[in-house]
Each structure stands twice: as C-alpha cells, then as structure tokens.
C-alpha cells in the first residue's frame, strides 16, 4: 500500500485536521466525537446534517457551508459514523427550525442515524437517498445512496437557506431523490488504509459494473470495453429508471471515484450528454469531477436529475463550501 500517510491509525484525524485548517473560514471541526459544522449559521434555519464513512471526500465534509450542510459526521473510512456524532452535531447546529438528516441508504448509515434520531428531542426528519439503479427498485435492502446525494444536499441546502421549513425541506429532498438516478463502474478496487491491500482483485481486462462507493464489488464483472459501451450501459439503466420525456430539463453529473483523471471524466460527460441529447432531453446543468469518491478507486458514475424550475433555482443559488462554490 502506497499512501501519503503517517500510519493507518492517525490518517483520518490528521486529514480532518488539515481540512479544518484549510477551511477555517467556513467550518469548524469538533474532535471528540468527530463532526464538522458550518460557521455563521443563521438563526431559525432548518439544520441539514449528513454523514457517512470517510473516504468519499469531498462528500460530506466538503459540502458543509452556506447554502448546503450545517454539519457532517465522518465515520472511520467506509464505516458509518456513530449515533453520538450525529446527536451532538444536531444539538450544536439546531436552532429552532428542526433537523433534517440526509442519509445514504446503507444498513450502517441508516441504523446509526435512526438511533440518533430516536434520541434527539427536537423536530426532525430524514431524507433517505437511494439513487443507485444498479439494483432493482425492490431490492431487499432498497437501493444504495451514491453520487446523487450531493444534488439532494445542494438543492435542499438552498431551500433551507431561503427559509423553507422542515416539512418543505423533507418534501423537496424526497422529490430530488425521486428525480435522481445514478450508476457507476469501477476499473480498479480501492485500498482502505486499515486493510493495506485492495478490497477486491480485478484483472486488467475486467470492470466491476454497478458498484457502490465503499470499494465493494459491483453487480457483475464485465470485460473491459470502450467508454462508449460502458457509458451506454450506465446511461441506459438511468434512462429506463427515470424515463425522461422529450424536452425534459436535466442536470447531468459525472462523478469520478478518485483516481480517474478529469480527461476521462469529461470524455464520459461527452458520451453521456450525447446519449441523452439524442433522446431530446435538455441538459441544462452539469457537474464533472471527483465529488463522491471511493478513496483511490478508478472509475466513475453517471447521475441524472430531472429538474424543474424550483430545483433549478435552488441549484443555482449561492453556495460556499470547500468543494462547491458559486455566487459567493
């Protein structure tokens, strides 16, 4: 394992320290337990809290700030955070308008957030993100939450900033989830520091199709083929799920898993955009880059969100976080 670290025990703490130092103008880092909160949160704004295992950076810590999250709770690498993190973060950022938890649908995340929510004595709601269409809708655990989470956090974050109440934020979050579909393909495994070796083996002429974001294997192994073929598989699954009609406005997000160069991500963007434009769909917003990563995994996912006026307005609203910033 080759990593720029001092030891597997200290990597998370040191990395969070660096993050806190680099962005001390907008966030604050609590050490015991770990959570990151936004500085200068306005009074009486619904508090948006997300979290999940570390290793997906910039998700979620990099999305804390004006117009997005009020707090993020990073767990150990690929390990859901614990209820006390969420509870303490919630108690710190809640200030009169209640708490909205944004949770990716993974057993660990769901259960730990659930426990926190049960212990929280202020109004709260949860938006469960389950945008990964590599699994059927009726999968026994439901579908996983992947790169679409950022889009939920941006749009609901803008609504909360604009004064939407808890019920409205919850409703909007559910709407974004229902309008969003994602699917990813991995070219390599990633290496979790504590494991010291790649999570799975994969040969030079194979890809894992339909992967989550924790270095798990995908739905199936496929032969390595052209970007055209791979993008077609991903885009088709998304298209069949969302069934966008002609002239539907969409946001197209190409998300890198961490080790795939921007050169390839833009190439994937081009192919995916062609796929949807050929169907008469209007790509009105786009986001290309490494946002929901799996450490040093090579590969990418495609996310599509069906947009309406309200969602567009909130997507365009000012945001100032470590990873997403515009209008400020």
């Amino acid at each position: 394992m080759k990593k720029l670290i001092n030891g597997v025990e200290s990597v998370l703490e040191e990395s969070l320290n660096g993050f806190a130092r680099a962005h001390s103008n907008i966030i604050q880092f609590n050490h015991q337990p770990h959570y990151v909160t936004r500085k200068n949160k306005p009074e009486n704004k619904v508090a948006l809290i997300s979290g999940g295992g570390a290793g997906h950076e910039p998700l979620h810590t990099g999305l804390v700030g004006k117009g997005m999250l009020d707090a993020a709770c990073p767990g150990q690498v690929f390990t859901s955070p614990t209820p006390d993190q969420m509870l303490m973060a919630a108690q710190e950022v809640e200030n009169g308008a209640g708490v909205l938890f944004i949770v990716k649908n993974y057993a660990g995340d769901v259960m730990n957030f659930e426990i926190a929510a049960e212990m929280l004595d202020c109004p709260h709601e949860t938006v469960l993100v389950n945008d990964d269409v590599s699994l059927p809708k009726n999968h026994s655990t439901g579908r996983r939450g992947v790169a679409g989470t950022l889009i939920v956090e941006k749009i609901v974050g803008a609504a909360a900033e604009a004064g939407a109440d808890l019920a409205a934020c919850k409703q909007l979050g559910d709407k974004v989830v229902n309008s969003t579909a994602s699917m990813g393909v991995a070219l390599t495994s990633c290496t979790v520091p504590a494991l010291g070796q790649p999570t799975f083996d994969i040969s030079d002429n194979e890809v894992e199709m339909g992967v989550g974001i924790h270095g798990e294997r995908g739905r199936e192994v496929m032969s390595l083929t052209t970007a055209d073929d791979l993008v077609h598989i991903l885009a088709k699954a998304i298209d069949e799920e969302l069934k966008p009609t002609k002239d539907q406005r969409v946001l197209l997000h190409i998300n890198g898993f961490g080790a795939t160069p921007l050169m390839e991500l833009y190439l994937v963007y081009d192919l995916a955009a062609q796929f949807f434009e050929e169907r008469g769909i209007k790509i009105v917003r786009s986001l290309v880059g490494n946002y929901t990563t799996s450490l040093d995994m090579a590969g990418c996912s495609i996310t599509l969100t069906l947009m309406d006026d309200e969602m567009l307005q909130y997507w365009d609203a000012p945001v100032h976080t470590a990873a997403l910033r515009w209008g400020i």
Binding site: T79, S80, T82, G108, M111
Partner: peptide, 15 residues
Amino acid sequence: LMSTMGGASGSLLGS
C-alpha cells in the same frame, strides 16, 4: 460499542 464501532455491526451490537 455503539459510539466506537460504527458501521452496521456497531449499531446492531450496540443495540
């Protein structure tokens, strides 16, 4: 266990 393990098993064993 609940506040140190994390993951699915942490919430389950903790509970």
